[in-house]
């Protein structure tokens, strides 16, 4: 894995999650940021800040990205979501088109 193949997602509290670009692109919103011509300034540095997404939710989202890749490659496991996270997670998922 090369550094150029990763993106850093930064939460509201400034926590950083370094994930593979392929995983990040499970999100249509992030995919658009990473692939649109004349791309976003953030994505040229491989960093995207989400001032409205809390750390706990952003980590769950990253776990979901990887789960999604595993599921797509035929590994059928369940994705566990704590009930208290559901609402915030749905709002973030809506924003990220995930």
């Amino acid at each position: 894995m090369r550094k150029e193949d990763t993106v850093k997602l930064i939460s509201a509290e400034g926590f950083e999650f370094v994930i593979d670009k392929n995983a990040a692109m499970v999100s249509q919103t992030i995919r658009n940021m990473l692939t649109s011509p004349g791309s976003f300034a953030e994505t040229q540095h491989g960093e995207v800040t989400f001032p409205e997404i809390s750390t706990t939710i952003l980590e769950k989202i990253c776990q979901y990205f990887y789960w999604s890749l595993q599921f797509a490659s035929g590994k059928e496991t369940e994705f566990h979501i704590e009930p208290e996270l559901t609402l915030e997670l749905m709002m973030a998922a809506n924003y990220l088109h995930t």
Partner: peptide
């Protein structure tokens, strides 16, 4: 998930 301080690296 490899963690140090406020950073988490997801390693395949």
């Amino acid at each position: 998930r490899v963690k140090r301080s406020k950073t988490t690296y997801f390693i395949q």
